[in-house]
Structure formats: C-alpha cells, structure tokens
C-alpha cells in the first residue's frame, strides 16, 4: 500500500493524540478517584419501593462521623425528598454524601446544577453517587432527562448547612387528645427519632397556654438516643390548673414543631 510521507506523519500524530486522550481520561478517572455510576447496587422493584431497604423511608441518615447516606425516589414530577412537597435535602458542611437514587415510574435524572453530581435514574436500578460538600451552599436538583409533560417542573434542593444548624432528629408523632374532662390529666405522647449514627441527646420542649385564663406551662425534657434510635416521652397538663375552655399546645424538637389545641369540658358527652 502506497502512503504519502505527509499522510504517514499525520497518521502517527493522530494515533499519538488518541492514545494520549485515552491516557488522560484513564488518569482523570482512576487517578482522581472519579467513580462511574455502575452495577454495584442491587436492583429494586419499582412497584414496591416501600419494601426496599432505604427507600421504605427515604431521606438522610448518618453512617459515619462525616458521612451520610441519602436515599431519594424520583417520580413524575419531583424528588422524595428534595422537592417542595417532600422538603429539601439537608446535609452538613464538610461531609461526604452517598446518594442512592431510584425511580418509581419512568427514566429521570438526578443532577445537581453546575456540579458533576449527575446521574440517570432508571426504574428498577439504583444509581449510587458519592460527593463531598465543603461549604454551606444551596444546590438545585433538576431532572435533565425528558420524563413527561411536566418534566420542566421537576426540581429540588440539596442544602448544605453549617454544622451548628444541622441535626437528624425528626419529631415523628405527638399523640394528643382533642378534648378532656375538667379534673383529668391531658397527656401528650411524643415520639422522636434520630438518624445520627452515634449516641446523641436533644431536648423536647412542651408549651401550653389557655388564652382565656392566661394559665401557661412550659416543660423541657432531655432525650437520649443510641445510633439510629427512637425515643418517647410524655408531657402532662393538669386541667384543674388550666380551667375550662380551649388551650393551645406546641411540641418543639430543634426546628421541628407540632401544635394543636385541646378543649377542656365540664363534662364529656358520652358517644352513645
């Protein structure tokens, strides 16, 4: 085969360029530790995510001193958690975060705008991606794969917050009566969970006030948790002190608040 000398030089230069590009990409991937989204996660059933580990209760959990797992379910047209309905994803500064994202319907993406946290989200598969967050910052999550007529409305937030503003306590439930008979105690059963990996304490604060009589009460209770634990406590209001009429109550744990009101009656009507 007859090849012109210039052609030969060009051919060699082209091959050198190609090999050099492959070398830089290999170094830029393996050397810098940029792991590909791959097949290391087990498959899930997109129709029964409530039975899948992590996706039964999606959200942030702490797994190490500065390490957090975040399970997210993408759906038409939002993220649970992350979007407005399910609340933004909060993580602390200086943390390493493992995102596990799946879809319960069609193919989406989970993409933090302006970063290389960007992955396809395929129903049946779990996309795992690890990123480090140094500074407090708010990142937009968007879906960059067309997923249906409201695709452009699909957005969420990953908020990296200062260490001191960050906690993983959730005020799960407050069991409170709607009405009580004068003289009886009104009891409030409070359930709080911790998604921290180690032993932690927090404070639950109970406040109640009868606006008509001006009576009020404020009680604080310290709660102690093991790693990934739930704690319960009960607050009591003696209705003799409060008198009849409605009183308002709130339970506060960190920045989580539940509130309601209780009617204190002379005599409870029997449901006969």
């Amino acid at each position: 085969m007859q090849i012109h000398n210039y052609e030969k030089m060009w051919l060699v230069a082209a091959l050198v360029l190609i090999v050099a590009i492959i070398a830089t990409i290999t170094y830029g991937t393996v050397g810098l530790g940029i792991a590909m989204v791959d097949d290391t996660e087990d498959t899930v059933d997109p129709g029964a995510l409530e039975e899948e580990d992590g996706f039964d209760d999606p959200g942030v959990t702490q797994v190490g001193e500065n390490e957090y797992d975040v399970h997210v379910i993408a759906y038409q047209f939002g993220y649970d958690p992350g979007d407005e309905v399910n609340g933004e994803i909060q993580i602390p500064e200086d943390s390493e975060v493992n995102f596990y994202v799946t879809s319960r319907d069609v193919i989406h993406s989970f993409s933090l705008v302006g970063t290389n946290v960007n992955t396809m989200v395929v129903p049946g598969e779990v996309a795992a991606i690890t990123a480090e967050f140094d500074e407090p910052e708010r990142y937009g999550i968007i879906c960059n794969e067309y997923c249906g007529p409201q695709h452009h409305d699909m957005e969420g937030i990953v908020a990296v917050v200062p260490e001191e503003d960050f906690h993983l306590f959730t005020l799960e439930d407050v069991e409170a009566p709607d009405e009580v008979e004068l003289g009886d105690d009104a009891t409030f059963d409070v359930t709080v969970s911790s998604d921290h990996y180690d032993e932690r304490t927090t404070t639950a604060t109970f406040e109640a006030e009868n606006e008509t009589t001006g009576e009020e009460v404020e009680v604080e209770e310290e709660l102690t948790f093991d790693g990934h634990d739930t704690a319960e406590t009960t607050f009591t209001v003696d209705t003799d002190d409060f008198g009849t009429g409605d009183f308002d109550w709130t339970v506060t744990v960190e920045d989580e608040i539940e509130s309601g009101s209780v009617a204190v009656l002379e005599e409870l009507e029997e449901d006969e």
């Binding site: 937009g140 695709h151 957005e155 937030i157």
Partner: peptide, 12 residues
C-alpha cells in the same frame, strides 16, 4: 438542561 421546555427554576 437539554430537552426541557422551561429550563428556569424556583429554587436556584
């Protein structure tokens, strides 16, 4: 993003 009718968002 590509393939997006309204690539402007509320949150950021």
């Amino acid at each position: 993003p590509r393939r997006t009718a309204e690539p402007w968002y509320d949150g950021f």
